[in-house]
Design a binder for these strands. Structure first.
Lengths: 143, 143
DNA sequence: CCCGTTTCTTGACTCATTCAAGATTTCGCG
DNA sequence: CGCGAAATCTTGAATGAGTCAAGAAACGGG
């Protein structure tokens, strides 16, 4: 995806097109599940003088517009990804914190209907699988 | 549940029985989904001079032992509950952050098998439903 | 090209959580 | 019941992701 595409995305969401936002979009696209610090670094490769505040603002704006998704498993800092709207979920490694994408097994919107929703109007279901990634499995076995 | 029961729980998990731990267990039992600050307050009603550090340590020990569960939805501080091992999930209100329990609709361990696990060994699936609680629905309508 | 609004920069600040060192407590064992 | 090693707690300071605020700059409709 080129910057022109990112601009399209932004305009499509009625967001102003600014250098930091385009750079943030690119950084998030290239670094799936990256934490804020990693994204900040990646953004500065494209645009050396951005402030961290601009990155936070951009991420918040993009999240609100639904262009990026913010994920934050317990005990982890915020992470972001661009793959939105396709109902996929995440596996998180308990030892190293790595995150991988998982397409949900059951149909297309599984678990979206709770048995008793306590009167809540539910608009999204988020699934996080906890486990151990291949690398950490190997590391544990060889211990 | 009385303190004797909490002691049983602790001993059963091979944990030392200390005043702070018993107080923390009681506080978490009485305050489902409470954040750390609330728990700290509740603990001090039972045991006025505990340090916040002891509460953190106890919560960590109890979590590790599987007696309490730590939940931390995005944008929220850590919260704890004692209802463990029954595969229930949570609805979180986007406006006020309230959390309610939800028993999962589909069978007993839905979504536990991802379609492609990327080599991860998954041991737990956590589901978070995002929506709006009844109070906030009312508040929004009357705006 | 201009102007009002949004967004960015700079820098200070919050506050949940963690770290460290030394004092206490717990509990198995005699 | 009392000892001693190990775990746990107290105190107090430090960390660091994220937020807040005020003024400067950039965006884009007209």
């Amino acid at each position: 995806m080129g910057n022109a595409d990112y601009e399209q995305l932004l305009r499509g969401a009625s967001l102003r097109v600014t250098r930091p936002r385009v750079a943030v979009l690119g950084a998030v696209s290239d670094n799936a599940h990256a934490d804020t610090e990693t994204i900040l670094g990646a953004v500065r490769e494209r645009l050396p003088d951005v402030s961290h505040q601009a990155v936070y603002d951009s991420l918040a704006a993009l999240s609100a517009a639904g262009i990026v998704r913010r994920i934050q498993p317990s005990g982890s800092v915020a992470r972001y990804e661009t793959r939105v709207g396709d109902n996929h979920h995440h596996v998180v490694c308990r030892s190293c914190g790595n995150i991988a994408d998982v397409d949900c097994a059951v149909g297309h919107t599984p678990c979206l209907t709770a048995s008793d929703d306590n009167g809540f109007v539910v608009d999204e279901a988020e699934v996080i699988y906890w486990g151990t990634c291949p690398q950490c499995q190997a590391a544990q076995r060889s211990k």
